[in-house]
Design a binder for these strands. Structure first.
Length: 338
DNA sequence: AATATATTCAACCGCGAAAAC
DNA sequence: AGTTTTCGCGGTTGAATATAT
C-alpha cells in the first residue's frame, strides 16, 4: 500500500502531495451550512463522483473523502433522518446476525439509512441492549465466559482477524458464520479455505438451527444440485446468490410460521398448546411484534421494492405486522439463535 | 448551580479492492 | 502486466449534548 499522503505520477515519477490528504489549507471538522450548500448545489448540477477533484471544482476547502462522506451520510436527498423505528431495528438485528459488521450491506437493505448511522446505532444502542439481555452482540448467542488463551491459540491463522476480535461459538471456539464466509469469499480466492464451499453449508447447518421451521433447506439446496465446487465458488461470487441466501435465512421463520399455521389447521391438537412469543421480539422491543420481511423474489424480483435494485437483497418494505405466536419448540430454536 | 460522567453521532483515518492509466 | 489513483468500507475519535451527583 502506498502512502496515502502522496502520489507518484505515472508520467513524471515525481512524488507530489495529494490535495485530498494534504493538511495545508484543507478544512476539517464539522461542516458549515454554507459548505453544505456549495456541495449540494454542485452535486445537483454535476452529479456525484470524481471526489478527489470535486472540492476544487465546487470551491470547497475540503478533501474529497470528507465531501463524499458529507454527501453520503447527510446531504443526499434519500437520507432518512430521525430515530430508528422498531421494524428497522429488528431488521438490523436480523441482518447483523447474518452478516456481522458489514454495515454497508446492512444499510443497503434499509432504505434511507446510512452505514454510518447503523454502525453508530449498533455500537451505542443495540449491542448494549443485547448485552443487557445476556446475549453476545457479536455472535447473537448467550454470553459465555471468554475461553482460555490456549483454545484461541489452536484457532487456524485464517480465522484470526487483527481488526476484529474472534467470534466465538458456544464452546468458546472461534468460528465464522456461513454468511460471513460467503461475504469473505466474494473477494477472497477460493483456496483460502480448502473446505469451501461445502463447509459453508456445513457451517450453516451447524450454527443455524434446522428444527421446526428454521430449516436450512433453502441454503443447502444450492449446494446439493450436483454443482462442482468451482461452480459454487463462482455462484457465491455474485450478488444474486448472496441475495437469495440471505433472503431465505431472513424469511425462514416467517415461512415456518405459515407452515405451522397450515399444520395447526390440519391437526388442531397435534402441537403444543403452550403459547409463547419469539425471544427476538422480547429482546428488541418493549412492545411485541414481528417485522415482516418481503418474501423471496417479491422483494428483489422483477419489480424493485423500496427503491432497491432488482437483484438486491431483501429490504424493509412493511410496517410491523401483528405478533406471531410460536410454539415452545419453535421458541427453543429461536433462543438458540440469539 | 456547578461539576463529573455517560451517551450520541458526525467526522476522520487507514486500509484494501477496483478502476484507470 | 505492472503501477498509480480513486473509491468505499469499517474502526475509531472527540466534540456536543444529556444525565447524574
Amino acid at each position: 500500500m502506498r502512502n496515502p499522503s502522496s502520489t507518484t505520477s505515472t508520467r513524471s515519477k515525481i512524488t507530489v502531495p495529494t490535495p485530498c490528504c494534504s493538511k495545508v489549507g484543507i478544512k476539517k471538522g464539522p461542516w458549515k451550512p454554507e459548505e453544505d450548500e456549495l456541495l449540494a448545489n454542485y452535486i445537483k448540477k454535476e452529479g456525484e463522483g470524481r471526489w478527489r477533484t470535486l472540492p476544487n471544482r465546487a470551491g470547497l476547502a475540503r478533501c474529497g473523502k470528507s465531501c463524499r462522506l458529507r454527501w453520503m451520510n447527510y446531504l443526499r436527498p434519500s437520507v432518512k433522518r430521525g430515530r430508528i423505528a422498531p421494524d428497522e431495528e429488528d431488521l438490523i438485528l436480523r441482518l447483523h446476525r447474518l452478516l456481522g459488521n458489514r454495515w454497508s450491506l446492512i444499510a443497503g437493505r434499509i432504505p434511507g439509512r446510512t452505514d454510518n448511522e447503523i454502525k453508530n446505532y449498533w455500537n451505542t444502542s443495540l449491542s448494549k441492549k443485547l448485552i443487557s439481555q445476556g446475549i453476545d452482540p457479536r455472535t447473537h448467542r448467550p454470553l459465555k465466559p471468554y475461553p482460555d488463551s490456549s483454545e484461541i491459540e489452536n484457532v487456524p491463522v485464517q480465522n484470526r482477524n487483527p481488526k476484529s476480535p474472534p467470534v466465538l461459538d458456544e464452546n468458546g471456539r472461534v468460528y465464522r458464520t456461513a454468511a460471513t464466509r460467503v461475504s469473505e469469499n466474494l473477494t477472497a480466492p477460493p483456496n483460502l479455505d480448502d473446505q469451501f464451499p461445502s463447509q459453508v453449508a456445513a457451517d450453516a447447518t451447524e450454527y443455524w438451527p434446522n428444527r421446526d421451521g428454521f430449516n436450512m433447506g433453502s441454503l443447502q439446496s444450492g449446494y446439493d444440485q450436483g454443482k462442482t465446487d468451482e461452480d459454487l465458488i463462482e455462484d457465491i461470487g455474485n450478488e444474486d446468490t448472496l441475495s437469495s441466501l440471505l433472503d431465505s435465512l431472513l424469511n425462514d421463520n416467517v415461512f415456518a410460521y405459515q407452515q405451522r399455521q397450515q399444520l395447526q389447521q390440519q391437526n388442531m391438537s397435534g402441537l403444543s398448546s403452550k403459547l409463547v412469543v419469539s425471544s427476538s421480539q422480547i429482546l428488541s422491543h418493549g412492545n411485541i411484534w414481528e417485522a415482516q420481511v418481503s418474501p423471496p423474489m417479491a422483494a428483489f424480483g422483477d419489480k424493485a421494492v423500496g427503491g432497491a435494485p432488482s437483484n438486491s437483497l431483501p429490504v424493509l418494505t412493511h410496517q410491523p405486522a401483528p405478533l406471531h405466536v410460536l410454539t415452545e419448540n419453535q421458541t427453543d430454536v429461536i433462543n438458540g439463535m440469539y
